Amino acid sequence: MEDVCDGCKLASENSNHCFWTCKFAREMWESSKLALPFEPDRDCSFKDIMWGLLMEEDSTSEMVAKVTTCAWALWGNQNEVRLDGQRKSRLTLFQKAVQFLEEYYAVLGTDTSTCTPRPQQSTWAPPQGLVYKLNVDGAIFSDLKAMGFGAIIRDEKGAVVAALSRKFHASLGAAEAEAKAAEMGLQFAKDIGVRDIILEGDSLNVYRALQGLSTPPPSVDAVILGVQTACSEFRYVEFSHIRHEGNRPAHLLAKYVKGIDDYCTWIEEFPCFLEHALIHDVNAIPVN
Rank of each mutant, 00 (worst) to 15 (best):
Q95F: 13
Q95D: 15
K96P: 12
K96W: 10
A97V: 05
V98W: 13
V98A: 15
Q99F: 12
F100V: 15
E102P: 00
E103K: 15
E103D: 15
Y104E: 15
A106E: 12
A106M: 08
L108V: 10
G109F: 04
G109T: 10
T110I: 14
S113L: 08
T114M: 11
C115P: 00
T116K: 11
T116C: 10
R118A: 04
Q120K: 10
Q121S: 10
W124Q: 02
W124V: 05
A125I: 06
P126F: 08
P126V: 11
L130H: 13
V131I: 12
K133A: 09
N135V: 02
V136P: 11
D137V: 00
G138V: 10
L144H: 11
M147P: 00
G148P: 03
F149Q: 04
F149E: 06
F149W: 09
F149V: 14
G150W: 00
A151S: 10
A151Y: 03
I152R: 00
I152E: 01
I153C: 02
D155S: 02
D155F: 05
G158E: 07
V161Y: 05
V161A: 05
A162E: 03
A162W: 08
A162L: 07
L164T: 01
L164D: 01
S165Q: 01
F168R: 05
S171D: 09
L172N: 03
G173A: 03
A175H: 02
A175R: 04
A175K: 03
E176Y: 08
E178I: 08
A179Q: 05
A179P: 07
A181Y: 05
K190R: 11
D191K: 09
I192E: 00
I192D: 00
G193F: 01
R195Q: 12
E200Q: 15
D202L: 06
D202M: 03
V206N: 07
A209V: 06
Q211G: 08
Q211S: 14
Q211P: 01
P216R: 07
P216I: 07
P216C: 05
